[in-house]
Every structure is written in structure tokens, then in C-alpha cells.
Nucleic acid binder design. Structure first.
Lengths: 250, 250
DNA sequence: GCCGCTATCCCGGAAAAGGGGGATATCAGC
DNA sequence: GCTGATATCCCCCTTTTCCGGGATAGCGGC
């Protein structure tokens, strides 16, 4: 089968998943087709503390997963750290060229190998403002890295993570309860609020009166069903009305 | 040629680029092979203000690029905002389902069409702590979207952005190295601030006095060099100290 | 033992935000 | 011509934040 056909089939497989279990089954199949044994689709958080709110699917050996969770490795795992310095998938063997590996990192990697984990390929999945995440594929120690499949693994990782985001948060769903749109002026004001300006300062910048700014901010808050400017900023950042790039310009 | 061969050729093409001009030439070739006419590989910043420190390569019509830069659209462009809410490439036609489009957004899209830009496909490229970026491919209005090439376009976009990062990294990175760490209690307070609680409410929740909360909030603000609780929330969200998942979790 | 960091609590004044109440003008759509 | 949405401006009052001061106590490192 050609690569395009495989890519589309992976996409449809993971997009058809209606539950995390579905997705896990789909990923197990995809992983096998890619020439890997293990997959891990996860947010980089303390998975025990996050309790179901964070993405977490894998078919790693249970023993390894337990050790991993018990030591909150989701936060310090060098594979995850490396995935924070690139937007492209990478082989674990090249991690050392991406981030400095500490003694603890090397111990962890050695321990993983002892428990049967060999080389792997990790696709970063970073969405601004959300927990960082990734999709990894790995093999038992000794099995060769399926080099020819890496472009497909990159695609599969992205598709899988988006499918997981859809299942976990409902975001990315392509038919929606649409978030309340703000008027241009309300967005202007929300932007300045997000930059920490007072109503008076925003008024100077926009060349209007303080009361008008306060009015726009209040109405923007109403649309988002909140009563604090801080929450307005959080909501607008979350729904994409504002971005960090907007807030930090200049 | 098979899809895998094309993907690898794209990868080698962009990785072989030694200068931005090389990369632009490589991208022009890739774009054509993908069935598109235009590409834009860019950080989402005020490109005139960023002056060479930000990635910016494209072959859009000059007239459009000038208008775009003059109006600092790199920051408010709905295509860019949409690329901040996903990690997967998307067609511009599905943007309305991803983010709320304001009147200004619709005006901008109409203007683009008038200047010959039709539908496009944008690959987000987000690396935590760096400016958000993306790689877009677009066609003249009227030309069909090359659906079969979209998986390849996704890969090409990622490869290209990483190649650009490699080229630009030598000329100054866009990140500050060390986000100020908060103490546990400061983080607790920042979290409650991000949930819109007043100091008094946070005090009730944490079982301490209002003044103590105010003190933690103030010190957390100091560490981030800000003087408003709204900015504290923005900063902690940006640097990953807090995530939306934290804020919305109950 | 001292120092720095953390966490806790307290005060007071100035500034800002939050939540009411109004008003007028424009513009698009029916 | 009316209606609704938008944008603008004004007043008042309460609550909250912001920014100076303070103080005490535990804990870990040098």
C-alpha cells in the first residue's frame, strides 16, 4: 500500500474513534503497521495528579508505566524535554544533540532499556496555552528503527494527538458550540486588558474615554459569562480570540 | 514518484539549505510540486518590529505582503490565530469552525481574495517558549485544493519550519532562557487568580488569610516582572507554569 | 549561629475594577 | 421608518487590587 493511502487510513482510523478505548485500539494497529511495538500518547503532566483530565494512552509494559507514574516522570522525562525544543519528530538516539542529558536522564534511559524499551521516535504536539504533549513510538531493545516509516509515524503522531484532544476536551471538533465572538472594539479592549493596561491607559491608547473602555470590557465579559477581566483574558486566550503573540507584540 | 520518496526529497532539500535564500528557492520548488502556488513560512510577530530575528519567508504577491506588514497582520491574522488552537495542518475553509471570526477577519479574507489568494493549507509550528509560527501553502482563487497532497504538505511544512529555525537560530533566538519558577504556594495562588478568585476567596479556599494570599500574589508578580494579576496569569500560562487544563479542572 | 527563603499575618491609603443607572449617533437590515 | 447592534460618553457607589510599610516562625545551607 502506498504511503498516501496509509496516511489517510491512519487519519480515518483515529478520527473514527469515539472513546479513548477505541483510540487505544486504533493506535495499537497503527503502531504495528508502522513497524513499532509500543506507543504512548500523552500530555506532559503529573498524570496521577491530573486524574483523567490529561491525555494518557499507551501500551508500554505495565511495570514501566507504574514506575514512570510513581516518579512523576511525565514532567522530567528527557524525551518530553527534547520534544519541547522542536516541532519535528525525532529519534531518541538524537536526543543528546537536542538537550543536555543529566545523569538522572541517563539512569532513566538505562532503566527503560533494562525493562525492554529500545529506541523510539517521538512527535511533539504543542498547542499554545495547553499542556505540552507528544506521541511516541518505540521498540523493544534490539529491534531496528523502521526508518522508512518515520514520515508516516510523524503524520500518525499528529493525527493521533489531535484525535485525543478531540476526545479529551471536545476542542478541535469540527462542528461546534461556537464560542462567543467579540466585536472588533471589544477585542481591542480585551487585548489591552491582556497586556495589563488599566481602563484609563487603554482609553489613552485607543483615543476614547475611560468609560467607553470599561463598557466594552464589561460587555466582552458578559459574552463570555465571566465577571473578572482576568477571566476574560483567560477565556479569549483559550478560545483563540486572543493569542500570546497578540499580547506580547512590541 | 511515491509519497515517501517525495517526503524524503523535501526533507533533504530544505535541510540542505544554507541560507534563507536557499530555503526560499527550495520552498518554491516544494510548493509547486505539492500543487500550490504560494508559500509563507513565518513567525507570528510584528515582522517590521522583529527586524530579522523572526522567521519570514514567502512568495506571496508583493502587494499583499506590503499591505500585510504595514497593518501588522502577522499578529491578528485569523489563519495564525487558528494555527494556535491545533497541532495539525488545516484548510483555511475550516477556520470558522476553529476560532470565532470577527468582522475585521472577514474583511481581511475578502481583501486577500480580491488580491488573488484563494484557499490554503496551514501547518502550525509551535515550540514552547518561542514565537508561534506556521507554514502555509496557498493557491490563486479558483484553483482547486490539492487534497491528495495535504499529508505531504503537512510534512513539508514541519520540515521547512525546522529548517528555518536552524537557519535563524544562529542569528538570535526568540526566547528568554529561564522562566522564573514560583514557590508552591505562589503557584497555588496564581492558579486561583487564574480562576478569577479574589484574594478573599482564595484565602477561604486555601484556609489562610487574605493578606497572605495578597502577599503570595504580589511576590509571584514580582518574579515575573509584572504588576497586575492579569499579567501574572498570562505569563504563567505562557511559560507553562499554569495550563488551561489546570484552570478549568475542578 | 546566621542568612536566605518560605509562609504566615497585619495596617492603611490610593488606584482601579465591578456593577448599576443613564444618553446619543451611526449603520445595516427589514 | 423602525429595530438591533455597535460605539461613544457621563455619573455614582462599592469592592477589590496595588503598593508602601511592618512582624513572626520554620527550615536548610554555609
Amino acid at each position: 500500500m502506498g504511503m498516501h493511502a496509509m496516511a489517510m487510513r491512519f487519519l480515518h482510523l483515529v478520527e473514527a474513534s469515539a472513546t479513548p478505548d477505541d483510540l487505544a485500539a486504533a493506535m495499537a494497529a497503527v503502531t504495528e503497521e508502522l513497524g513499532f511495538q509500543y506507543f504512548a500518547l500523552t500530555h506532559h503532566v503529573d498524570i496521577l495528579a491530573a486524574r483523567g483530565t490529561a491525555i494518557r494512552l499507551h501500551n508500554y509494559p505495565a511495570q514501566w508505566a507504574d514506575y514512570y507514574d510513581a516518579n512523576v516522570l511525565g514532567l522530567s522525562d528527557p524525551v518530553h524535554r527534547a520534544s519541547h525544543v522542536t516541532s519535528k519528530g525525532f529519534c531518541w538516539s538524537s536526543m543528546a544533540m537536542m538537550i543536555p542529558l543529566t545523569a538522572a536522564d541517563l539512569r532513566l534511559l538505562r532503566l527503560g532499556r533494562e525493562q525492554g524499551l529500545g529506541d523510539g521516535f517521538t512527535v511533539p504536539a504543542n498547542v499554545p496555552g495547553e499542556a505540552r504533549g507528544s506521541c511516541s513510538f518505540a521498540n523493544q531493545a534490539g529491534r531496528p528503527m523502521p526508518e522508512l516509516m518515520l514520515p508516516l509515524a510523524q503524520l500518525a503522531g499528529i493525527f493521533a494527538f489531535e484525535a485525543a484532544r478531540r476526545l479529551w476536551t471536545g476542542r478541535g471538533r469540527l462542528q461546534d458550540p461556537r464560542p462567543p465572538a467579540l466585536t472588533d472594539r471589544q477585542r481591542d479592549c480585551a487585548l489591552l486588558v491582556g497586556r495589563g493596561k488599566s481602563d484609563w491607559e487603554a482609553a489613552q491608547i485607543l483615543g476614547i474615554s475611560e468609560e467607553t473602555v470599561a463598557c466594552h470590557v464589561r460587555q466582552a465579559c458578559e459574552r463570555h459569562g465571566v465577571n473578572k477581566r482576568t477571566l476574560l483574558v483567560v477565556q479569549t486566550l483559550f478560545d483563540g480570540t486572543l493569542t500570546f503573540t497578540d499580547l506580547f507584540r512590541r
